[in-house]
Nucleic acid binder design. Structure first.
Length: 156
DNA sequence: GCCAACGTTGGC
DNA sequence: GCCAACGTTGGC
């Protein structure tokens, strides 16, 4: 069970690129490649070790929340921003002044029942959830505790 | 600082 | 593959 003060987050990943099964295999991974300032700021300024992370499959069939992870490290610079060969290379970044930050996330469990976007959308107790807002496309976003607890209760 | 052009996300 | 939504870039 999450402790007091635990925050809830949702991260998106295309399962063709990195799925919850990949995370289960790896146990833990650096959440590299986030290149959106708002998403970065959540990781940099607000995430704490032990926070609960919903793992969302985007661009998939079906789309939805596949399981749970946890924030497993303090924030640190995304190493790919220094790698000239990476698509995530950031020419403005230096070791002293990194631009992109990340945390590690650790596998917790797959949901017994996958929470498809369709079922999330039709759940009145999730009304107002950021994920469900039209045009919303943040790849790292907060989840309100009430919404988080409801999803946990129904997903197993 | 404005804003048009362009690129990306992500559901469908 | 389409395209709406939205973020970023760069000229001015």
């Amino acid at each position: 069970m999450p402790g007091k003060g635990t925050q809830y987050w949702l991260v998106k990943s295309e399962p063709d690129v990195y799925s919850i099964d990949d995370l289960a295999r790896d146990g833990k991974t650096a959440w590299t490649g986030v290149r959106n300032y708002q998403a970065r700021n959540f990781m940099r300024d607000a995430m704490r070790v032990g926070d609960v992370v919903f793992f969302y499959h985007s661009n998939a069939t079906p789309t939805g929340i596949a399981g749970l992870a946890r924030v497993a490290s303090a924030v640190y610079p995304d190493p790919l921003q220094f790698d000239k060969k990476s698509e995530y290379f950031e020419p403005r970044a230096t070791e002293a002044k990194p631009v992109w930050m990340l945390v590690d996330i650790a596998f917790e469990r797959k949901f017994k029942s996958f929470c498809s976007l369709e079922t999330l959308r039709t759940d009145r107790r999730l009304e107002g959830m950021l994920l469900l807002k039209r045009g919303q496309r943040l790849s790292v976003q907060p989840v309100e505790p009430a919404h988080a607890k409801h999803i946990l209760a129904r997903a197993g």
